[in-house]
């Protein structure tokens, strides 16, 4: 049984009485423990595909199987990290991380303990009582990450998690995420990340799935078995990046 299996998925959106195709006949499999990057030009439907994998959006045709079962609603074994952080401005850092646990019916004591644990893991301890408006972009995204990890998902979905950050901050955060994934502090070992930065995908992922411009169709599934930590200046990183770029440019 596959962890996730996407079977001939089509997605259309209603727009001004016209059905706009967003994704066309997408099929692939995700194995447990993989780090997958979805890349493609902007507007190719990669964010929609990510939402299909979590059940936030349902396919028009075809199906998404999670552990052999077709998703018909939000998959509570998955958690999401957003480009815009999407933090509740009226809740403190602690409150934001606790929200998902509260929904899962944990006792107050338990959720406090669990939230504190994940706040600690992403390096946010000391910030528990801060409100999002006090935080820099990098800290905000750490809260987003802690919130997603705290529900102990089986699948972590990240939608352009570093694109709203300045270059140095995104570099720091990217390295931290990789470090946590490699030494298993995350508790989740399957990650799917959407990005429009090819280099970011090649530096981080085990597999890169490439989508065509709208409507998004499947262009390539590229396995990257370079050793970690990977070096930006590595010739092979450059080669693979060039290969993906030429696929998308075609």
């Amino acid at each position: 049984m596959n962890f996730i299996e996407v079977q001939k998925v089509f997605k259309f959106f209603q727009q001004d009485r016209v059905l706009m195709p967003v994704l066309k006949e997408i099929s692939f499999k995700v194995h447990e423990g993989e780090f997958i990057a979805l890349v493609g030009p902007s507007g190719c439907g990669k964010s929609t595909l990510l939402r299909l994998l979590t059940g936030l959006v349902l396919p028009t045709e075809g199906s998404v199987l999670y552990k052999g079962k077709s998703l018909t609603s939000v998959n509570l074994d998955s958690a999401m990290v957003f480009q815009s952080f999407a933090l509740f401005p009226w809740l403190t850092v602690m409150g934001n991380v606790e929200v998902g646990l509260e929904a899962r019916g944990l006792s107050e004591e338990m959720r406090h303990k669990r939230a504190a644990e994940f706040i600690d893991k992403v390096g946010l301890d000391g910030f528990e009582e801060a409100y999002p408006r006090e935080l820099s972009g990098g800290m905000k995204q750490r809260v987003g990450l802690a919130r997603a990890l705290a529900v102990e998902p089986k699948l972590l979905c990240m939608d352009e998690p570093f694109s709203a950050l300045d270059p140095l901050t995104s570099l720091a955060l990217r390295e931290e995420v990789l470090m946590m994934w490699e030494d298993h502090t995350m508790a989740v070992n399957t990650i799917i990340m959407v990005t429009h930065m090819i280099e970011e995908a090649v530096l981080m992922a085990d597999r890169v799935l490439v989508l065509s411009p709208r409507p998004g169709t499947f262009l390539a599934d590229i396995k990257i078995d370079l050793p970690r930590p990977r070096d930006k200046k590595d010739v092979r990183v450059n080669e693979i990046s060039d290969q993906i770029f030429s696929l998308m440019a075609r």
Binding site: L56, M80, S84, V99, G100
Partner: peptide, 15 residues
């Protein structure tokens, strides 16, 4: 995105 977070975290109607 906040509405999406609520759904993705599985918040109940009341929450």
């Amino acid at each position: 995105d906040l509405k999406e977070v609520a759904r993705s975290l599985g918040l109940s109607r009341w929450h």
